[in-house]
Design a binder for these strands. Sequence first.
RNA 1: GCACGCAUGGCUCAGUUGGUUAGAGCGUUGCAUUCACAUUGCAAAGGUCCCUGGUUCGAAUCCAGGUGCGUGCACCA
Length: 928
Amino acid sequence: MAEVPKSYDPKNYEDTIYKRWEVSGFFNPDVCVEKGITDANASPFSIILPPPNVTGTLHIGHAAMLAIEDVMVRYHRMKGDRTLWVPGTDHAAIATQEKVEKNLWNQEKLTRQDLGREIFLKRVEEFAQDSHDTIVHQCKRMGTSMDWSREYYSLDAKRNLAVRTAFKKMYDEGLIYRGDRIVNWDPKMQSNVSDIEVVRKEEKAPFYYFQYGPFVIGTARPETKFGDKYVVMHPDDERYAQYTEGDTFECEWINGPITATIIKDASVDREFGSGVMTITPWHDANDFSIAERYGLDKEQVIDFDGTLLSIAGEFTGMHISEARPKIVEKLQSKGLVVKVDNEYIHSLATNSRGGGVIEPQIMKQWWVDVHKEFSMPHSNLKGVNMGDPVTLQKLMRHVVERQEITILPERFEKIYFNWVNELRDWCISRQIWYGHRVPVWYHSTCQHVDETGVSSAFKPAIVGELQKDEKGLVWCPYCKNSYDSLDHFFQDPDTLDTWFSAGLFSFSPLGWPVFSKTTTSKTGQENDFTNFHPTSVLETGYDILFFWVLRMVLMSTYILGEVPFKTVYLHGLVRDEHGNKMSKSLGNIIDPLDMAERYGTDATRLSLLIGSGPGADSRLSEEKIAGFRNFANKLWNIARFVGTTTKITVQNTQPISITLADKWILSRLNEIVRQVTENIEKYNFSYAGEVLRDFTWSDFADWYLEIAKIEGKKDEILSYILTILLKLWHPYMPFVTEAIWHDICGSEELLMVEKWPTFFKDGVYPELVEGAGKPDFSLVQGIITGIRATRAEHNIEPGKLITAYIKTGETYDLLEETAPIIRGLARVENLTIAAELEKPEDSVGFVERGVEVYIDLAGVVDVAKEEERLQREISMVEPYVIALEKKLSNKEFIQNAPGSVVEAEQKKLVDAKDKLIKLQDQLRTLSE
RNA sequence: GCACGCAUGGCUCAGUUGGUUAGAGCGUUGCAUUCACAUUGCAAAGGUCCCUGGUUCGAAUCCAGGUGCGUGCACCA
């Protein structure tokens, strides 16, 4: 073996190892099958990477996601599954465009309109490409074993075809419609955004009470009040019982007298304000729904740029921020202001991207109708047959109810149902430029009039590849004119919500719609859709459950008639050490790449995997990462020790054990393999890692390796344990394990594709599992620890060899066999082991499970100190004995508790009593 | 307002179907350096498991109520 460095420096290994993995081709399941690594008929395991947005760089949350998914993927690959992890990036329409617009303004003082659509989009694409390259580099740096030959971009040609195909299918079914509805308009971004993209911010703003005819109305938004001509109150409100619905009255208002009509509607909250309100249907979602119910007029007051329209009279053209105080001033002068509440707090709707203040507007937009009933076109879903009447909402509810999709942790199922049950139609069109263009073309000259009465000269027709006839002509479905190019048509200028394309991500990256489910071949990208859909697991942050998971279920159940994935595993947020969200403004960002540079990728991954429960937010600190850097180094040195003292051979079969310590460590190892395997299967990544770390550091390094130094001749066992440990650690720490495998174990093969260890279900020594012969090493450990503690307490120098006596009772054979270990690890020179012996002079002692141990202090016993120690111990054992006696004298306990529990308690009592007597004896001899 | 979480040593968290004298890592204290590893080892201190009540032979664990913290949704005329 070549000279191995004393400590593990990740920088010297990580890049080289990643290249070796890439060159091997084993990230690609087809290559694994071809090379005989994976059986062609093995069960598939697939994950589609939740594609990071091309808005910049990956943050620590991404790193956590990559680490968790890589653990699953590496585990399943080693287990022998046909394992596919598809990488990708998302164009994130609004987010990316917003970022580029911001840069454009900051650096060049230009707007997107200044550049024009085509040039602006080029700029966005350049930005996106840069971000993409950074992200790919970062993913590789984190050690992810994704199949880069299958990488996709959410806006590439294949995904665009998927979007168009899905859109057309839903449009033809009537599930996508175009309609005038109230939307969340962002005047700053000049686009509408969906309900879930709106965030509410608490804001203090004056709340005004105005006289409106005989009524007092309250509002925080006087600028919307110009067109208000309906006054609404609760039908049961006794204060207004004298008014009847439909009554009209004249009143003085902002720009002169108006006629107002009374409406009685139960949606009015009698407790709020005066219990009377006027409505502004064009600029308020609730008012809109009241207006719809009663067939009231709707009038636009505020323009799309946030300025007032001509209805505002003298205020026309003013921005609302400027107009508001002036309007109040005017009402004041007319004596119509009753009072002003300056302490009013309301939540202001803002756009989560860019922060623009939302101004509701009625606009013609494209919508997905989630409530429309249709007959299921085809179905592989449990409990849904072809032809069954369903709605998109019902499908989404159904598959989780029927457990076709399992959401983990379970509590998120409730949240999922809350969302599904409150689902409203999904507005999918956006007035931004970056994204999938709405795949609808209008015929410029067709005079067809919309049957819904919408006064548009044009009716959308989906053309292009999807609507060309056999001769390659494009035709208008209404006037039936056909053309040999798209010149007579123009495309809808809007783009689609980024989640529309994201909804297809369980299958569009697998080749749909070009490749369908017909193949029997288990390899080849053209067969991915057959071989890997539904995917095994969708792993993502809980914050995205509703944006994304819901949309994917919608798309897959309707379009394919099957679920997108079998399990949803949600991870939490990574916060800073104080529990705060990481943000630039707080300056508490921990950059994953920076950490990987300084502490190694493996340490960074471990810090994100261990110490956080599923779905729970976790706290991260640099100290934590440094701690795991130490552990990676520990593993390195364990291997280095094994490598320098023994000839390492990769051991895949259980070696023959010789000593009690051997049996103990092999039993423990078997148990660890079982626990790690089972907990990874159950998504308990943290627990599996903790168990493994404790075994590696404590049982193996601190105990067994020290024993190996004493007992010697352990080449096979050490090689075997190291081999298994490296395999178990590989999914968590791919680099250091691969480095050890190559540099220390001397293997030219890749650890990445080694077979995952198996375990004996009933333990490695089934004949020893029960009863006295069980390799119970803990007595020996207890005795050693006890001697060490006694030494420390009596200030015996660590290097000094001592004389000790052990009165074994029935455990003579066990302790006689392990005497060399006790001598070595407790630094005992003269050790007397006997079934019976008297307490030697000038000695102090302790009791370990019935075994009495005495240490010769060579005439320097500090009687007072020892007395104090014995008293202290006795005072701890006494109440314990009393508690046990009480428990065991309780007839109900004896009757009701299982026999094994009673037995265990009886044994505890015997041991504790025995210990108490022996301690009291020692105390007595001491004072004699 | 509705819903969902969380509460365990100074800090971060385990505690997997109710049976341990409640564990780990970091931090703290003492000791150790020609030893695979000081990115280490040995030992120690430190906890009324948020409160109250209930179920049970037995509760950190199950139930109810309360307190504190957090998250999502709704309302905000």
